[in-house]
Design a protein around this nucleic acid. Structure first.
Lengths: 118, 118
DNA sequence: TCCCTGGATAGATGTTCATCAAAACAAGAC
DNA sequence: GTCTTGTTTTGATGAACATCTATCCAGGGA
């Protein structure tokens, strides 16, 4: 469940977009991450998990918030998992997901308009 | 050329992902924006334009940086334009594109892990 | 005027993706 | 063991997307 390779940004690519042109490999990595969050359901899933008390949420909590079927939620969770944005763990009957904010941070940094260079 | 409606984030949606759950309409808007930058070519186009001296770049400068045909570049520029991320203007023979950093800022803010609440 | 060049549009094609129903799997309860 | 509930995987289907070729439009120079 948690042995996904971290497809995403390992840290070496954080100079803001507007500062210098992205290299092609950097762009490919970043595009994968942005694609993972370019779906409304996945954005809300990530948000629900990240903002949930205790930092983790049960799938059973998540499914009710959407109009789609269980398998569809499971599919979206898998996409987020493969992007390294969340991680799941089974504890007894339920599976709990937890967000990885440190993976989001570089994405935000790249988009940041290079805050006021004096 | 510049009469695209601003499909994107008009400001009212900037509470970080990890702070509180996104509403469904917020998620839909944000997902559109992220989808626009979820392609390596578009990310590099945006980066090339935003980091270009003078803040604008000629399409002729952009095309050479990629292995795809002119129409494909034109298509990607259109996607970025429709997302409100860039704007194009024809001056004589050439068309110049300019980035809108103020549209990127809210996207970065949403991803930001709610920087240290003391 | 006519051509040439830069750029956008139109139409077609192959691929990727979101979704669902059905089946499989995992853990408790009986 | 067998039933029940919760979650993931599989396979299929229709929509969205990236890319190409061919065509069109706008400006500038002969």
């Amino acid at each position: 469940m948690s042995k996904q390779l971290p497809l995403v940004v390992t840290g070496a690519c954080c100079s803001p977009l507007a500062r210098e042109p992205l290299s092609e490999p950097q762009a490919v990595e970043l595009a994968k991450a942005f694609k993972a969050i370019s779906d409304p359901i996945r954005l809300r899933l990530l948000s629900l998990i990240a903002s949930h008390e205790g930092g983790e949420a049960c799938v059973c909590d998540l499914t009710d918030a959407f109009d789609v079927t269980g398998p569809t939620i499971s599919h979206h969770l898998k996409v987020l998992r493969e992007a390294g944005l969340i991680d799941g763990e089974r504890r007894g009957t339920w599976v709990y997901y937890r967000a990885h904010p440190e993976v989001l941070a570089p994405l935000a940094a790249v988009l940041m308009p290079a805050a006021v260079p004096a």
